[in-house]
Design a protein around this nucleic acid. Structure first.
Lengths: 233, 233
DNA sequence: GTCGTCGCGATGATATACGATATGAAATAT
DNA sequence: ATATTTCATATCGTATATCATCGCGACGAC
């Protein structure tokens, strides 16, 4: 295991919280991939603490859905079968579009400029064949739009859902030819709607359609046999 | 503390899970009201176990937002200030309306009949001046509509948000004169929409408007000074 | 050769013990 | 009289130790 103290230290952090963040980062960073077994004693040893704080950390992660715990067997990074992936995506779609609408009226000209700039860099990342950058920028773009959501709880839910999908962020766009470019156009469309002061309902609908289209593209590409339109709504 | 073994026992349940459910029920049942301090030792003693499982349980509840933990101080049932209450209500509104739409096509004639029956009992509870029954039936009605939601994740989120609001279930309807009756009518309207195979978008919108109206009624009644329409969307 | 059983090692689950920290009340100084 | 310090107590945080359970492989019976 290469890096160690990257998480460095808010020195006043309980061990259980340190464990929590450490594991979470490892999952997000794909060091621990779905199915990876989290062994209490090993992690405790690695972090130089006892097993109790580690247990707590893992329980928290379980409550967030990143980790699955089976009694007397142990914990592992959540497997994401296709059904769950779709479900989570749709939940994210519902929540994020609402958050975007709730944030729309608060976005300043500067915010919109920033969003457009990110979107422009997404186009560059396409020419550079850099899917990883594309994914990162995509998240940044969306965050820019929903960040100022007036409803703190909805914001929390959106971010928690994002975290849950983190391990497979990479996979979506790169697989579906043409979808990325279309996505960038839809982004511009949403920005225009916000800019023009369109009704919130319209903004929400556009944001949701955008996510649904992504999911549909994925589904059609991965499961051409199934009836499409699963992401209806 | 009066009752004890109501939770009775799936006898094969880990102590930490037992603690988890026990505390959760107490919160839902208003034995532990917001602000109540959860003392590890006391709970452990009460449940005849050590503090470790109790800690774990409380951490889980914290992750769900029912409990707040402060380091070296302890845990207490989450305070719900007004801002949070509204935020959670709105989140519920967004999620539940989506869940209802996602369930609509799966509801059978029997399901709809059941929903109507519950709604009828709500009217009775009004003549009986039984707000507690009204509240319970209200939840039952809504559950009947969203229960068959095709998206398991969205269903989870809805129920988690419900739990989070559980401690103040009682308070909403009884306070706002006339709202209850109007609510029952809106219920009937939603059932009709589902029955007639209306577009999902329309069903979702109706369900959301229904919840928003409830929240608005509450806000106007409790905070007549503020600008209404906060629940916009 | 296959199936079942027994036992051992790995790992989780829980208990107990001790140290750390916060909170509030009493004591003291100004 | 008030502010500040001290100290006692309640409570949490973590480590260590023990018990329970699971999974797997060896062995033996059929």
């Amino acid at each position: 295991m290469a890096y160690e103290e990257l998480t460095s230290a808010p020195p006043d952090m309980s061990k259980s919280q340190r464990a929590y963040h450490w594991i979470k980062e490892r999952i997000a960073g794909q060091d621990f991939t779905p199915g990876y077994r989290l062994v209490l004693r090993s992690i405790a040893k690695e972090l130089d603490m006892s097993v109790v704080p580690v247990r707590e950390a893992i329980r928290q992660l379980e409550a967030e859905g990143l980790v699955t715990f089976e009694r007397n067997v142990g914990a592992q990074v959540s497997m994401v079968d296709d059904t769950r992936y779709r479900a989570s995506m749709q939940a994210l779609s519902i929540l994020e579009s609402a958050a975007t609408a709730l944030a729309a009226r608060r976005l300043t000209a500067a915010d919109l400029r920033h969003a457009r700039e990110v979107n422009a860099r997404m186009i560059e990342s396409l020419s550079d064949f850099d899917p990883s950058a594309f994914t990162r920028l995509n998240q940044e773009f969306h965050a820019a739009l929903y960040q100022k959501c007036t409803n703190a709880r909805v914001l929390e839910l959106v971010e928690s859902e994002w975290a849950r999908l983190a391990h497979l962020r990479e996979s979506t766009f790169s697989f579906v030819p043409g979808r990325a470019r279309q996505s960038v156009q839809e982004h511009e469309h949403i920005v225009r709607l916000i800019e023009s002061g369109a009704p919130l309902g319209e903004i929400e609908e556009a944001a949701r359609r955008h996510r649904s289209a992504t999911l549909d593209a994925y589904l059609i590409h991965e499961h051409p046999d199934e009836t499409p339109g699963l992401s209806a709504l």
